[in-house]
């Protein structure tokens, strides 16, 4: 099979799958719609009440799931390529932890009750603070110290989040915080999406620019450098892109794990382990996976809706077991 047909199959298939899942997720809700009716309502006039509901309630939810999933998948692929470690994901840099802490602080202080966009804004501020701290800690050093800095910042953010929970003014505020941390894209509005979209777009763009560098990095840092790549620039792109893309994603949807770990893993063999082509594929795959998980949540009969982060963790943890078995077989 030529490289071109192979690309067409993989990217066409993933694109189609993502589109299909997105359409289904618009059909599902309190009122079930046929796909044809859902498409019709998307473009219906203002006088059609159901159309407004689909556009203002269901569509932002689907868009949030697509955006967050795509970003997490892409960032996971970038970090696995950069560290050349299949167990890395965007959580490694501590940006998600920072974003979660920022949002939790907003919940704690009750600011979100007055300003509807307080949560994502807090998340953005937290992600920014975590990024600055990582940059200050790493300085000019290489990949190993970047990972160490990420682990340190993650731990600090987690500790501070626990501290906030510890001092939450009343049990309800505590519950609110825990619930938000479980991750969800339910009840997101276009305002929420609009707030994070510019940052995410910039971040995703920067992350895509790392592709050729990641491909050269397959041969190690020295060889990549001798092939004409600036490792310093590559590192800046990885840090900046992850911060701009994943911080806002966490601010929008809470802490959602495993997507960034699992998706690049599943897709890597389809792209013959090419770290550059894996980026776009992981973005599509992440979008499909998270939107699919959210669709599943809406279909499950429950008094209390399953949280998205819980769903991805429930699927992701067994996948981790599978990885261990696979690694055990490859390196006995």
């Amino acid at each position: 099979m030529s490289r071109r047909t192979e690309n067409c199959l993989v990217f066409g298939g993933l694109g189609l799958l993502t589109a299909l899942i997105a359409l289904l997720s618009i059909c599902v809700g309190t009122v079930f719609l046929s796909p044809a009716r859902a498409l019709e309502l998307l473009f219906a006039g203002e006088d059609e009440l159901l159309g407004v509901a689909v556009r203002e309630l269901r569509l932002p939810r689907t868009a949030s799931a697509l955006l967050v999933g795509g970003t997490l998948g892409l960032a996971g692929a970038v970090l696995q390529g950069y560290t050349r470690n299949p167990l890395a994901d965007s959580g490694l840099l501590g940006v998600n932890g920072g974003a979660a802490l920022g949002a939790v602080l907003m919940l704690y202080t009750g600011t979100f009750a007055h300003v509807s966009l307080a949560l994502p804004l807090g998340g953005l501020a937290g992600a920014l603070a975590a990024t600055l701290l990582i940059v200050a800690l790493t300085g000019k050093a290489g990949i190993a110290s970047l990972i160490l800095a990420g682990v340190a910042v993650s731990s600090l953010a987690a500790a501070l989040t626990s501290l906030v929970l510890n001092f939450s003014p009343n049990p309800y505020a505590g519950m609110e915080i825990v619930h938000w941390l479980l991750g969800s894209v339910a009840d997101r509005s276009w305002d929420h999406v609009g707030l994070v979209l510019p940052f995410m777009t910039a971040g995703v763009f920067i992350l895509f620019l790392t592709g050729p560098g990641l491909r050269a990095l397959s041969l190690g840092e020295d060889t990549a450098s001798s092939l004409g790549f600036s490792l310093r620039r590559l590192r800046w792109f990885v840090i900046l892109g992850t911060a701009l893309a994943v911080g806002p994603a966490t601010a929008l949807a809470g802490a959602i794990g495993f997507v960034g770990l699992v998706v690049p893993h599943l897709l890597r063999p389809l792209l013959r382990h090419d770290p550059a082509r894996l980026l776009a594929a992981s973005a599509l795959g992440g979008a499909a996976l998270l939107t699919g998980a959210d669709l599943l949540i809406q279909l499950l009969p429950a008094d209390r809706e399953f949280k998205l982060g819980v769903m991805t963790a429930l699927v992701g943890a067994p996948f981790f077991f599978y990885l261990i078995f696979k690694i055990r077989k490859e390196y006995p």
Binding site: R84, S218, L219, D222, T223, S226
Partner: peptide
Amino acid sequence: IAYLPQNPVCHWPLT
């Protein structure tokens, strides 16, 4: 100028 390091590696199972 091409450089072949002391312990050259390939981190992914490429063909």
